[in-house]
Structure formats: structure tokens, C-alpha cells
């Protein structure tokens, strides 16, 4: 490999993460690779339980006790995170990469004021102390669009609405201007108006601070609105990736196609919805071949036994489905 190859902000290579439970090893993430450039917004969609959150937690190294990264590499600006001590990791978590969790109520401590919790984050991750730290807290609250921040810092989480709490979480995550913001379902609990405000805010901050964003969500509308590139996950693997336009208009994996068919059609509300048939996979007994094969209408023999490799559809699009291999092969055969 060339020495001067492009160095990514974040480069996840063949990540494997497992949980060792009483009923056996759960291979939650099973060979995931992707990279992120500064200022990019990458969307991760996928079925519930497909390993989206576990991928995010692996990057931050905040897995449950039973979870372990069992393979692969995560490089931050070329540095292997595995070589970081816990101390360096702590620095990484605030300064380089922050995460916003799905539920703002459980991630804020109910017995402390907004101000004291935010100050703690500022003090932990920056040199600022005393008056200066308080000033920074107020500045951050202003940045996320909370009016009268001087009053708000004296309030407790339950005194704020859901949307305001989520903004406080974002303000905390931004305390030391990280290079990467991971947002794990940041708006699932919110109504559409507040959701739009929060998404607009993330976009604005991404532009203003040049921050890269990993946005995890199962809302395809949110992905279409926000993301440059999209990764689709199924059963612990990436089954398809590409630009948002490629994924929405020319999906090449049967799971992605099924997902897009499941959403109500804006132009024809009277047609029946088409869910993906079959039951979600059981992580404890994964199919031998393609994880989606038991639910796929187009499944062939090879799908049951061999895991499909990712194939380049075009420069902006890759998919891991044997159908594409078959088509490429047949096209090749025709022309020769």
C-alpha cells in the first residue's frame, strides 16, 4: 500500500464485536468497515438489532462488561485506538469524538441542575475553571438555541421539555468541539417539529465547526434530509453503502429494497404497505451464508452457504448481494 494514501479522520477496518453471554457468543458486529472525512455526515440505517449502536459504542470503547472488540482496527487520524490507554481514551471521548444517546432523560442526571452537569463536562474536557467554565456553559447553551441560558442553568432536567433536554445533551457533547459527533437516534423520541429543529441545529454546527457526524437512525426521512453517504446494516454486517441518492434511487441489496418498500408512499397513500416478510434474525443462530437469505425472495443456492463480498456497483455505490455478482457475470458473458 502506498505510504501517502488518503488518511481518514476515522477509519474503521473489519470491526468484530461480540458479547459473551450465558447462552453463547453474540456476534453483534461481524466485519464492519467504513471511513469518515472531516465535515462529512454519514448515516447508518438498519434493522433493529443489526449492530448500529454496538458499532458506535465500539468506537467510543463504552461497551457493556460482557462485550469485547474481537477483531479489526479503528484508526483515528491514522492512530490505532487499540494502542490508546484508558486515559488517552478518556481524552479521545471528549476532545475528538462525542456521542449523543437516544434518550435524553436517562442520560441526564435528574438530581443535578443543567448548569452543574454541563460544568462538569466542561471542566473534565477543557482547561476552563470557575467563572470561565460557567461562561462556556452559557455560550454552549446559546449555541444550541436555548434562550435565557442564565435562567436555564439553574433548572433541573424534568423542568425542560424533551426537545430542550436533547439540545442540552448536544451542548454537552459539543463542550470541547469534537472532530466527530456520533448521534445515536437523536430524535426518535421527539415530535416532527422539534426533530426538525434538532436536525437543523446539527447541520448548522457541522458547517460552522467543520465537524464530522455519524447519524444512526431507522428513520429514512431523516437520512434523506441529512446525509451525504449512507451505510445500511443487516445482521452485524454492512449490506450496502453509497451516496444517499444511489441508496434511495438505485438500491442493490434486497434488504435495502425491502426497507424502502415498507415506508408509506407519499404519492399514493391508498396502497397497502409492504413489510419485509419473515422474522428478524436471531443473533445466536445466524445463517451460514448471507444473513438476509432466509427472508429474501431472490435467494439462490449460493446465498445459503456463502457470505457475499461487497461488490462495487459504481464509484459511489457498493453492495454485498450475490444477485449483483450473478448479473455482473452474465453481463460479462454476453459481451464476450
Amino acid at each position: 500500500m502506498a505510504i501517502n494514501m488518503h488518511e481518514y479522520l476515522l477509519d474503521v477496518q473489519d470491526l468484530h464485536t461480540s458479547f459473551f453471554t450465558d447462552s453463547g457468543e453474540v456476534q453483534a458486529v461481524n466485519g464492519v468497515s467504513f471511513h469518515l472525512d472531516p465535515g462529512e455526515i454519514l448515516g447508518i440505517v438498519g434493522e433493529s438489532g443489526s449492530g448500529k449502536s454496538v458499532t458506535a459504542y465500539s468506537i467510543m470503547r463504552i461497551l457493556a462488561d460482557t462485550g469485547r472488540i474481537v477483531g479489526g482496527k479503528i484508526l483515528y487520524k491514522g492512530d490505532d485506538l487499540a494502542s490508546y490507554s484508558e486515559k488517552q481514551m478518556q481524552r479521545f471521548r471528549g476532545k475528538c469524538c462525542s456521542i449523543i444517546f437516544q434518550d435524553p432523560m436517562t442520560s441526564l442526571n435528574p438530581v443535578f441542575t443543567i448548569g452543574s452537569q454541563m460544568r462538569e463536562a466542561v471542566v473534565l474536557h477543557t482547561e476552563k475553571r470557575g467563572e470561565e467554565a460557567t461562561a462556556r456553559v452559557i455560550e454552549l447553551l446559546e449555541l444550541v438555541g436555548i434562550n435565557e441560558p442564565k435562567k436555564r442553568i439553574k433548572q433541573y432536567p424534568f423542568e425542560l421539555s424533551g426537545g430542550m433536554r436533547q439540545r442540552v445533551m448536544i451542548a454537552m457533547a459539543l463542550a470541547c468541539e469534537p472532530d466527530i459527533l456520533i448521534a445515536d437516534e437523536p430524535t426518535t423520541a421527539l415530535d416532527v417539529t422539534i426533530q426538525a429543529q434538532i436536525l437543523e441545529l446539527i447541520q448548522e454546527l457541522q458547517k460552522k465547526l467543520g465537524m464530522a457526524v455519524i447519524l444512526v437512525t431507522h428513520d429514512l426521512g431523516v437520512i434523506a434530509n441529512m446525509c451525504d453517504n449512507v451505510v445500511v446494516m443487516y445482521g452485524g454486517r454492512i449490506c450496502e453503502r453509497g451516496t444517499a441518492r444511489e441508496i434511495f434511487y438505485h438500491p442493490r441489496h434486497e434488504y435495502t429494497k425491502g426497507l424502502l418498500r415498507s415506508i408509506p408512499n407519499v404519492n399514493n397513500m391508498k396502497t397497502k404497505l409492504v413489510p419485509i416478510s419473515g422474522t428478524p434474525i436471531n443473533m445466536l443462530c445466524m445463517p451460514k451464508g448471507c444473513a438476509f437469505c432466509t427472508r429474501c425472495d431472490a435467494a439462490m443456492k449460493i446465498c445459503l452457504t456463502e457470505v457475499p463480498e461487497e461488490l462495487e456497483i459504481n464509484e459511489e455505490h457498493r453492495a454485498a448481494c450475490w444477485m449483483n455478482v450473478k448479473e455482473a457475470f452474465e453481463e460479462g458473458g454476453d459481451s464476450e
Binding site: V192, T193, A196, L199, L220, G221, A224, F248, Y249, V266
Partner: peptide, 26 residues
């Protein structure tokens, strides 16, 4: 404003559409 805030699952429509964001809180 409520309808304009609905995220439409179509990148071209989503990007060309103008959301009418409400000022202030409820």
C-alpha cells in the same frame, strides 16, 4: 409548519424543500 417538518424519505425532494421552522418554544 407541521407538514413542512415531516422528513420526506426522498433525497431530492428533501433537499429542495423548505422547512417552515417555528420560532420560539411552545
Amino acid at each position: 409548519s407541521l407538514l413542512s417538518a415531516v422528513p420526506i424519505p426522498d433525497p431530492d425532494i428533501a433537499r429542495s424543500r423548505k422547512r417552515i421552522l417555528l420560532e420560539g418554544d411552545v
